[in-house]
């Protein structure tokens, strides 16, 4: 067992466990924080797999921006800090959700292992570096990349438009800043 694999297993266990806590914790803020841990450990996994840029983007965008957004949302919606029983649905719903989760995960794992299980790959250093990724994105993936920028802009505008208060809207319509 190589050092990479040991590192991977450690990160994977951390990621899986924190993911579990993120969806089961009774405290809302803890959920968000466990998500941070989970996403961070995933970034580590990306590094192990040689995807340096993806790992960095993961940390920057997910851990840095998305989770902060989530925590902001929790604060704005006056989420309780204490353990709350109302975070989950009734026990029956939890049971059904567990079954569905097990089924999806099981089937996914089963098919993936059946298809590519037992394959060993050589992780080449430098293949996920900034230079090759940059060349790829700005040559072959240029059009999707530009489309994504438009999507992001649209999402930005949409988020602002949706979340404005009626009072803000009225003020805009009256033309008084």
């Amino acid at each position: 067992m190589s050092g990479l694999e040991v590192l991977f297993i450690a990160l994977a266990v951390l990621g899986g466990a924190s993911g579990l806590l993120a969806v089961t914790s009774p405290r809302v803020v803890h959920c968000a924080l466990w998500l941070v841990v989970c996403l961070g450990s995933l970034a580590g996994v990306y590094l192990v797999l040689g995807a340096e840029v993806v790992a960095l983007v993961q940390i920057l965008v997910y851990v840095g921006a998305v989770v902060v957004l989530v925590i902001f949302a929790l604060m704005l919606t006056r989420a309780p800090v204490d353990p709350s029983p109302r975070l989950n649905g009734p026990p029956l719903q939890k049971l059904a959700a567990g079954a569905a989760g097990l089924a999806v995960g099981g089937i996914l794992a089963g098919t993936l292992i059946y298809a590519v299980g037992g394959t060993e790959v050589q992780v080449r250093s430098g293949q996920g570096g900034a230079k090759p990724i940059g060349e790829a994105v700005f040559s072959g993936w240029l059009l999707p990349f530009e489309l994504l920028s438009v999507l992001l802009l649209a999402a930005l505008v949409a988020a602002i438009a949706v979340s404005r208060r009626p009072a803000d809207r009225k003020r805009d319509e009256d033309g008084t800043r």
Binding site: F8, A12, V45, G106, A109, I113, G117, G118
Partner: peptide, 12 residues
């Protein structure tokens, strides 16, 4: 060398 099995199971 690294096994692909690990990432796949973690993803599932």
């Amino acid at each position: 060398m690294i096994h692909l099995l690990g990432p796949l199971v973690l993803a599932s």
